[in-house]
């Protein structure tokens, strides 16, 4: 066991190319998924917060429920869409990083939308009369509210990133864990552990932990400093 830890640290310190490749791909996939999901989900969450429409309650419940969507189910859905016989089969996306990005978007979009809906709804409660008095339309209020809630929303987006970078089921199903093509940290850890290659698995595990921890630490520091400064 000690040897495995030692070997893991050596891999990290030596910047082992296989390890670096896997880490880079993981970041590319998860960051792309988070970026695309946020661009859609933040305004979507804000819109649901601001508008009353028939079936709104149902939308909120479904979104909240989808936050707990099992990654393997999301993976299966995207697999069926992208497989040869599926509606998007002609694009040949299955077992590519693009497929993994799509699967992770499916996973995080509900999280970011549902949480930002809560954040924006609360802020709208506070701002509503003042903004209406100034003549701000609901559509115009969306960017205003998103901007004013920016510190809370950073945490929301990070929750999405945490989910994306930590899940294994979805990317495994649609990516196939192909070495050098679709192998990311989580799928590699699962595979290497089952093969008994503990150093690589441990090394990746350590990096994954550090990554998620440091991203959250930075966000926390930014958020706290900004709250103190801007009130």
């Amino acid at each position: 066991m000690d040897n495995a830890f030692q070997a893991a640290f050596q891999l990290i310190v030596a910047m082992d190319p296989v390890l670096i490749g896997i880490v880079t791909l993981s970041l590319q996939v998860s960051l792309t998924a988070v970026a695309i999901a946020s661009v859609i989900a933040l305004p979507l969450g804000a819109a649901i917060a601001l508008w009353q429409f028939p079936g709104r309650g149902l939308v909120v419940v479904v979104l909240n429920a989808l936050m707990g969507l099992p990654p393997v189910v999301a993976g299966l859905m995207v697999y069926l869409m992208l497989s040869r016989a599926g509606p998007l089969g002609q694009f040949g996306l299955l077992f590519t990083p693009t497929a993994m990005v799509i699967a992770q978007i499916v996973l995080i979009l509900p999280i970011v939308a549902a949480l930002s809906r809560q954040v924006i709804e609360e802020l709208w409660g506070e701002y509503r009369e003042q903004l209406q008095s100034l003549g701000v339309s609901r559509l115009r209020a969306i960017p205003t509210l998103l901007w004013d809630a920016r510190f809370s929303l950073i945490t929301v987006v990070l929750a999405g990133f945490g989910r994306a970078s930590a899940e294994v089921g979805a990317v495994l199903i649609v990516g196939g864990n192909i070495s050098g093509v679709t192998r990311v940290m989580t799928t590699a850890i699962a595979l290497e552990t089952s093969k008994g290659n503990l150093p690589l698995a441990l090394g990746l595990g350590i990096i994954l932990l550090l990554l998620v921890a440091s991203v959250n630490a930075v966000a926390y520091i930014i958020g706290e400093a900004a709250k103190r400064r801007l009130g």
Partner: peptide
Amino acid sequence: AETIRRRQAMVFQRPVMLRR
């Protein structure tokens, strides 16, 4: 309606200021 809105203003008991 827009013109009417624009030519009124209201100051509340607790002013709401934006984070800027």
